[in-house]
């Protein structure tokens, strides 16, 4: 295979990873915009969503029937069902997280550090609970696709999985972007992001916005979890590394900026994919995201697109 094919292959890999990072990063960005807090347990929402989608896919596709080759429509349906179940799992997890770890503190008007500590506790709890209930080994998602290659881009084969992941993720991201831009809920989210007290005085229910933001972020992260597990595997520790990378993506695009999270995720995926091939040994791939994080914080702390949510004020 020529170098052109290699480049295309790396680009496809990067897009696949980047789309998932963008899905998770949106949750960080939204919560940071509304609460000015990094949601440290967001990676666990991603992990729980992955398990939700995994068990839905297992229920829909009995074990052993994996390779039998359902048709195109069935494939689309399976991916949609898994993504929806993942989103549901993520939403439930995010809701529970907000209830258990954040709301009691908000009631008591806790200092900011308390939120972070509580989120760390919730993260520890969620990881161990998942490990206890789902086992501490990697769990594969049943094989949804039979034919590996559906089309070729510049000589590189594109697997059906990659196509499904990228299209689903991009569709969800677009929907979330429009939701924030057009809907009434999105308007209140943006209003709270710009000036919470003023928004509140104008009739926005802060409590409702916070819950909605967590749920929206949870849906996206959970769906991303299923897509990630489809390409790799699900495990109870899977939230850690993608969570950090998605946070990097959110910082890269500008914390609090929805489009920034999208662009940052895709960019980070590409940088990682190419950097992991040309610059570094594959073992050190994960270092790239950290280097990007430090570099962004040093050179352009507001991120590529600036730290704002949705349209300019």
């Amino acid at each position: 295979m020529g170098s052109g094919g290699q480049v295309a292959r790396l680009a496809i890999d990067g897009l696949m990873a980047g789309a998932v990072y963008a899905l998770i990063a949106l949750g960080y960005t939204l919560v940071y915009g509304v609460l000015r807090l990094v949601n440290l347990a967001h990676g666990e929402v991603f992990m729980l969503g992955a398990f939700g989608g995994l068990y839905a896919a297992r229920a829909a596709l009995p074990a052993g029937a994996g390779g039998a080759g359902p048709g195109v429509l069935a494939c689309v349906g399976l991916v949609a069902a898994g993504t929806a179940a993942g989103g549901l799992g993520g939403a439930v997890a995010a809701l529970g997280l907000e209830r258990a770890a954040y709301r009691p503190l908000r009631r008591r008007r806790a200092p900011r550090l308390a939120y972070l500590v509580s989120a760390v506790g919730a993260s520890m709890f969620a990881v161990s609970l998942a490990g206890k209930e789902f086992g501490r080994r990697d769990v594969p998602v049943p094989n949804l696709f039979t034919d590996r290659t559906v089309l070729r881009v510049a000589g590189a084969p594109v697997s059906a999985e990659a196509l499904a992941v990228v299209t689903t993720a991009l569709g969800l991201l677009l929907a979330a972007d429009r939701l924030v831009a057009w809907s009434r809920l999105g308007r209140s989210i943006r209003a709270v992001t710009q000036d919470a007290e003023c928004a509140v005085l104008l009739g926005v229910s802060l409590e409702r916005v916070i819950v909605a933001t967590f749920v929206l972020g949870g849906v996206l992260a959970g769906a991303g979890g299923f897509l990630y597990a489809m390409t790799f595997q699900a495990s109870y520790t899977m939230g850690f590394v993608p969570g950090i990378k998605a946070f990097t993506a959110a910082v890269l695009g500008g914390l609090g900026n929805v489009r920034g999270a999208l662009a940052g995720g895709l960019l980070l995926g590409l940088v990682e994919s190419f950097g992991g091939y040309y610059l570094l040994d594959a073992d050190y791939r994960d270092v790239i995201a950290f280097a990007v994080l430090i570099a962004v914080l040093l050179l352009r702390p507001s991120g590529l697109l600036g730290a704002r949510l949705g349209r300019p004020a």
Binding site: A110, V117, M124
Partner: peptide, 23 residues
């Protein structure tokens, strides 16, 4: 392996009960 369940729950409870005494 289950220790962190209790530690995590403990951290959450301590923080929720005494958010200001934490510091």
């Amino acid at each position: 392996a289950d220790r962190f369940l209790y530690f995590g729950a403990l951290v959450m409870i301590m923080t929720a009960l005494r958010p200001r005494r934490l510091l």
